[in-house]
């Protein structure tokens, strides 16, 4: 088919071609991380001894979530890989609030993210510190807010609740793993494809210059950076390199906001999280994370 298309001299209009190129690029870039995330989820659900992760955690809710927010240090997985892993943690008995804490913190404090952010910015203007401290604080605050909800299971989609309640079948570990791979990819892959398509479409439709002209205003530059993070949907492992060239145009606080907000919330992530959390939860999470990351940016602008 490829040969026929190439031979016919057929070409798509530029915008359609770029929409496809951008969407495919998001998929090819994310797919290895999603596979890695599914593998880790299989390890957590099938291969780790029962209660292994819980053993080391304090019982007090706040301290427990603080411990969970540090899990990501050992996991070089960026945000899209964390979605299947978070689902696995919930199946294994983490509360919704605890897994949200993990989900928000892990992409920011994963070792690759810290190394690339340090390579890009060093310790200039406190951007690296703001990212790590701000990201951990936001994850713990948002986790605490959701822990106050009286009915944790009402935060989840019915299909994911059904997944958690699947009866335990006596089965070989290998067969369970394969079965889990089929079910997790059915939940995550369509969301990844749709998220990639939406991210591509927004990028073709919204001129980048609109965002960049806002760069020099202390408040608007922060909003512009959140919008940019939202539409660009680039992995937390590499977003520091992406934003580095903008460091000349934008204030340091807005760069920090980009680096805190982007790994947690973007179009691709929302599409993938919708497999697990209700729309209401995602809206609330987006609003709270946006306000807190704007606050991180304002503090950096004020101090730097």
């Amino acid at each position: 088919m490829r040969a026929i298309v190439e031979g016919s001299g057929f070409s798509l209009p530029n915008q359609v071609q770029d929409l496809l190129t951008l969407s495919i690029s998001v998929i090819i870039e994310s797919l290895p991380f999603v596979i890695l995330g599914i593998l880790l989820s299989i390890v957590v659900q099938v291969w780790l001894p029962e209660g292994f992760l819980m053993r080391f955690l304090p019982h007090n809710g706040v301290l427990r979530r603080a411990g969970i927010s540090l899990f990501g240090i050992f996991l070089p997985v960026c945000e899209c890989g964390n979605v299947p892993l978070t689902r696995g943690l919930m199946v294994k008995g983490f509360t919704v609030a605890e897994s949200i804490t993990f989900l928000l913190a892990a992409p920011i404090i994963n070792p690759i993210t810290i190394i690339t952010t340090h390579q890009a910015f060093g310790f200039d203007n406190g951007i690296l510190i703001a990212r790590i401290v701000g990201g951990l604080a936001i994850a713990n605050i948002v986790g605490w807010v959701f822990s106050l909800h009286p009915s944790q299971s009402s935060l989840l989609t019915p299909s994911f609740i059904a997944e958690c309640r699947r009866p335990e079948h006596p089965d070989t570990k290998r067969h369970k793993s394969v079965d889990l791979f089929v079910r997790e990819s059915s939940a995550i892959m369509p969301a990844l494809f749709i998220g990639a398509l939406v991210a591509g479409a927004i990028q073709v439709a919204v001129p980048r210059s609109v965002l960049i002209t806002l760069g020099s205003d202390p408040l608007f530059s922060i909003l512009a950076m959140m919008l940019l993070a939202f539409v660009i949907a680039v992995c937390s492992n590499v977003d520091a390199f992406f934003i580095l060239p903008f460091a000349n145009t934008f204030m340091p606080g807005s760069i920090a906001t980009f680096l805190v907000f982007g790994p947690i919330i973007d179009v691709k992530m929302l599409a993938m999280l919708r497999t697990t959390f209700t729309t209401k939860v995602l809206v609330q999470m987006t609003v709270v994370v946006a306000l807190l990351s704007a606050l991180v940016g304002l503090v950096v602008n004020y101090v730097a």
Partner: peptide
Amino acid sequence: ITCCAVDAQ
């Protein structure tokens, strides 16, 4: 590009 075609400048 720094990561993938999405971030192309």
